[in-house]
């Protein structure tokens, strides 16, 4: 299968198989006016299978959102057909408007205009705590 190379944009590599669609949705890539290639189940030496995302434009991307879904990705920044930078991400200490609190008793469930803020509490489990009600959010759940 041939996927065109990109002149300017991003190649998000080493995405855990199955996670590319989550990143695609979270970053709202479907609304872009450029080429976006979502490639799943690519053969990988390291992990056997991986996903890839190619974005044909140098847009502002929220690294925290990508890191929350999959902290092991590599983000290659492409300019004039060349990779000019490789970005590595780590699980963010704080998440703002990435997930919603699933506690029906949390003030965020009724108060308009409130940011959904979470603090990292366990790096291993990738769990976060709601800043308001302190409920623990399991990883990868209740993504906006």
């Amino acid at each position: 299968m041939n996927i065109d190379t990109i002149k300017n944009g991003y190649v998000i590599d080493h995405i855990t198989a199955g996670n590319a669609i989550k990143i695609y949705k979270l970053l709202n890539l479907g609304n872009l006016d450029c080429t976006v290639a979502l490639i799943t189940n690519v053969k990988s030496k390291k992990t056997k299978r991986k996903d890839l995302l190619k974005i044909g434009k140098l847009i502002d991307i929220d690294l925290d959102k990508i890191a929350y879904i999959d902290p092991q990705v590599t983000i290659n920044v492409v300019k004039d057909d060349k990779i000019i930078e490789k970005k590595y991400v780590k699980l963010p200490e704080k998440l703002i408007n990435v997930c919603v609190c699933n506690n029906p008793r949390c003030i965020t469930s009724i108060e308009r205009g409130l940011d959904q803020v979470f603090q990292l509490v366990n790096t291993e489990k990738k769990s976060y705590r709601c800043e308001y009600c302190e409920s623990i959010l399991e990883h990868d759940k209740f993504v906006i």
Binding site: I107, T108, C133
Partner: peptide, 8 residues
């Protein structure tokens, strides 16, 4: 009744 309301 909502948790976190006083912080807001």
């Amino acid at each position: 009744p909502k948790e976190g309301a006083p912080m807001v």
